[in-house]
Simulated scan of single mutants.
Amino acid sequence: MSSAEREATESDDPVAYFLEDITFQGKSQRTRDAYERVLREFEGYLDDRGLELSEANHRDCMAWIHRLRGSVGESTVATYASYLHRFYGYMTEVGTFDENPMALVLEEIDESINVDPERRDITVPAMRSFVADVGNPLDRAVIVTLLKTGMRAGELCNLDRRDLSLNDSPFATDHRPQLDGKPDSLYVDASPKAGDRYNEEVRTASNKRKRATTIPIDEELASVLVEWLAVRPDPRSDADPLFLSTADEWGKRLTPDMVHHLVEMHARDQGWYRDGGGAEENVTPHYFRHFFTTHLRDRTGDRGIVKYLRGDVAQDVIDTYTHDWGDRVREVYEANIYRLL
């Protein structure tokens, strides 16, 4: 797209301009579609009132949000408001709009909107029963990895074989130097970004953690990974992805959309997912991250180690846990990680 064409898109269709930019920033197709659906709905609402997106004030935004109540859940209202806020904030930063009307709205918005909704409360025994019903080796390995590590779907998709160190496995291969002296571990780098070349392959997902993290592998996760490696197809990529499609895209690196689809399929079978259900109801890959955080934090009483494993902490805290990694992180993890098999 030429500069002239981009400027025309920016002024004539601000939504398309914004969607293109968040795609460049590495947002998944699923996220892009969600933004487009919300922004086009709001754009249609303004059009009925004879207004352009650039002309909306805080009262227009508040009136639309008020209209949503009763038709969608409160957590969905909060999500829609955050999408609108980011859209206007970005368009203001790039100079297309003069101001962000949502900045004031978020200050005024009803406190009953829960931006961090209470999610479905699933016990460890119930999750164990759920895992027992997953027979496909790939699906089982993906779900148990997410549940045992708390990593994001995109981070799981970016794992290569070199990021896995298995001590007693017939499928052991050379691992990256960062795993030297750390047997039975997964290395989750912070570097991969969507659209960038990493380990000789252009990635379709970004890792969002603040720092690279080494996560212990317990006996259960090791066993399902060995089962997966026994049937894993030959990869199409020289990067040797750990998780590969066994369906239409045979041998291709899994994408976040593929991971969402397989988790949704099994969650539907369990009655844990329905169309139109919000974050407080539907079980998704992100729910598994929530499950990991909640249960491991409650068991350890150590927020620091959980934050380290999630990749959410700054360098000084990382240093605390990596200095004596084997004794501190692994011992606490293995003593407290829940059983799923």
Rank of each mutant, 00 (worst) to 15 (best):
S2T: 13
E5M: 07
E10G: 04
D12P: 02
D13W: 03
F24E: 14
G26V: 07
S28F: 04
R30D: 03
A34I: 02
Y45A: 07
R49G: 14
L51W: 01
L53C: 11
N57K: 00
R59E: 12
R59V: 15
M62N: 00
A63R: 00
R67G: 13
L68I: 04
L68A: 10
L68F: 06
S75T: 07
A78N: 04
T79G: 04
T79S: 13
G89H: 02
Y90L: 01
M91W: 05
T92K: 10
G95P: 08
N100C: 04
P101Y: 10
M102L: 13
V105R: 00
L146R: 07
M151N: 08
G154S: 03
D163H: 13
S169H: 01
P183R: 09
D184V: 01
Y187Q: 10
D189V: 02
V202C: 05
S206L: 05
D218H: 03
E220V: 08
E220T: 12
V226Q: 08
E227T: 13
D238L: 13
D248A: 12
W250R: 15
M258H: 02
Y273E: 02
D275T: 15
A279P: 01
H290C: 11
T294P: 03
G301K: 06
R310K: 12
D319K: 13
W325V: 12
E331K: 14
E331I: 04
Y333V: 03
